[in-house]
């Protein structure tokens, strides 16, 4: 009877961990899952496996998942600020634009990191590691993104719905080649 309760708990935790929407919750559910599963190992008479599960499953795996979540959440945005005198005219507009973009990314559980750079946009695109690089001329805003980054589709949709009136050009670079989307 007790055994059955633990086994059903295990199945429920596994299903919930797979179906959850937020990654943080999945880490918590997986911690509980590994706790219960190591007790089930004990019930079936495998204490050495249970010790290994307790050390690896509930400690090291949690640490690794959390570190991976931290790395994945940082989203660096380069803002190329090389226009000179004209920037003062556009900086106000663009800063609300950037603030809204940051708020959108925070809502999607990312940690936006804005970097203002005086270097020309070509150098940034060639040399730096970035998730988004933003550059603007008088009328147009150019946004460079990496095609493998799956947040880029959401960003594009957000920009099209909220800033459709601005002239925004989204450029996806794949492996050094610039493909206009």
């Amino acid at each position: 009877m007790t055994e059955n309760i633990f086994l059903i708990t295990l199945v429920v935790l596994a299903i919930v961990a797979l179906n959850t929407k937020k990654l943080r919750r999945a880490v918590v559910y997986l911690g509980a899952f590994s706790l219960v599963s190591s007790f089930v190992y004990l019930l079936y008479g495998a204490p050495d496996v249970a010790i290994a599960e307790a050390i690896i499953g509930s400690t090291i795996t949690t640490v690794l998942y959390l570190v991976a979540l931290r790395k994945y959440q940082v989203f660096s945005i380069y803002y190329a600020n090389s226009v000179g005198d004209q920037t003062s005219r556009y900086l106000n507009d663009n800063s609300t634009f950037l603030n809204n973009l940051e708020a959108f990314l925070i809502q999607r559980e990312m940690e936006p990191q804005l970097i203002y750079s005086g270097a020309p946009i070509e150098t940034i695109v060639d040399q730096e590691k970035f998730d988004l690089a933003i550059h603007h001329t008088d009328q147009d805003i150019w946004i460079y993104g990496c095609a493998e980054d799956y947040q880029l589709d959401a960003v594009e949709e957000y920009l099209l719905t909220n800033y459709g009136d601005l002239n925004i050009h989204l450029i996806r670079c794949a492996e050094g080649e610039d493909n206009e989307a």
Binding site: V27, I55, T62, V63, L66
Partner: peptide
């Protein structure tokens, strides 16, 4: 070892 995961998740948030 049980407290480590709790502490780390709390630190992470």
């Amino acid at each position: 070892l049980g407290f480590i995961s709790t502490v780390l998740i709390a630190r992470f948030i």
